[in-house]
Design a protein around this nucleic acid. Structure first.
Lengths: 151, 151
DNA sequence: ATATATGCAAAACTTTTGCATACAA
DNA sequence: TTGTATGCAAAAGTTTTGCATATAT
């Protein structure tokens, strides 16, 4: 896969060896497709990789531009593939069930591109990346709430 | 001021008394106009209010919908006035100097409103609020970098 | 062979909590 | 007066670090 080659390349140029821990972490993040916290990785990847190693692994991978660190207001960080490796996307955070779902919509990006231009013209700020998250109720929680309320 | 009345109202309906600590925290957050961390508040508000009290104060104010908790990927939380109390805005985060500047642009909101509609139509997710932050280089850091590079 | 990565234990940092005292209403 | 807020100290949760050992290249 092309993406895997690019990951290899970034690991190499950051002088990071291909180890079992890193491979496991990346495999799980690629497979799950949602931003994961280190404790979650600890559970998924297997307890045989200690937390301290996981923290070092994700930190190194962030430095190598393979992972990206995210924080919602949860009190801990989550990690996902760097945006060059995954399709650029945003997040739908359900405040009822806590789920975080990726969202990619061409129409959004077009509008944001205009916005970045507006900002540069207005303030002189050169936006290189952005982060756009939506908070609300996912379809299934909306249904659940409707059912409860109907009672 | 109208906003202060609204804050009073929210404190009252959350059964929160008007104390010196809360008043100080709110005064500083209103005055500074940038999202502040608790350690920053500790320094600004005065060391005579201990950290534990500050954490309790901001937590209570978040529950009362007077403050809003934000997290960039810094490892700690920042607090600013709830969006109903401040003009709805976004953030320009300079990755060179770390400054966080508020930005409010009508054109952005119009585009986001369309986006929220798109999302509801596409996914069924009902977005109640959103968060949009831009990361890049502020005008003065861009100038500084240009100067350095020119040498 | 050699530099890098890991595991363990200990520590640092942010945030939370229990409880007695102080304060706002 | 009465319930709420604070200060202090201790603890909990997340993340970082030192150092000896194990591993990738």
């Amino acid at each position: 896969m092309d993406r895997d080659n690019e990951i290899e390349r970034r690991l190499k140029s950051a002088n990071l060896r291909t180890t079992e821990g890193r491979t496991r972490v990346l495999d799980h993040i690629k497979r799950i497709g949602q931003p994961l916290s280190v404790p979650e990785l600890h559970e998924f990847v297997g307890v045989q990789v200690p937390l301290s190693s996981l923290y070092r692994i994700v930190s190194d991978l962030v430095d190598a531009a393979v992972l990206r660190k995210l924080e919602f207001a949860e009190g801990f960080a989550r990690y996902e593939l760097d945006e060059d490796l995954a399709e650029h996307h945003h997040h739908l955070v359900c405040t009822a069930c806590g789920s975080v779902v990726d969202l990619a919509l061409d129409a959004i990006e077009a509008r944001l591109h205009q916005t970045v231009d507006d900002i540069a013209a207005t303030t002189g700020f050169r936006a290189r990346t952005h982060r756009l998250d939506f908070f609300g109720t996912c379809a299934s929680c909306a249904t659940a709430v409707a059912a409860t309320t109907a009672t």
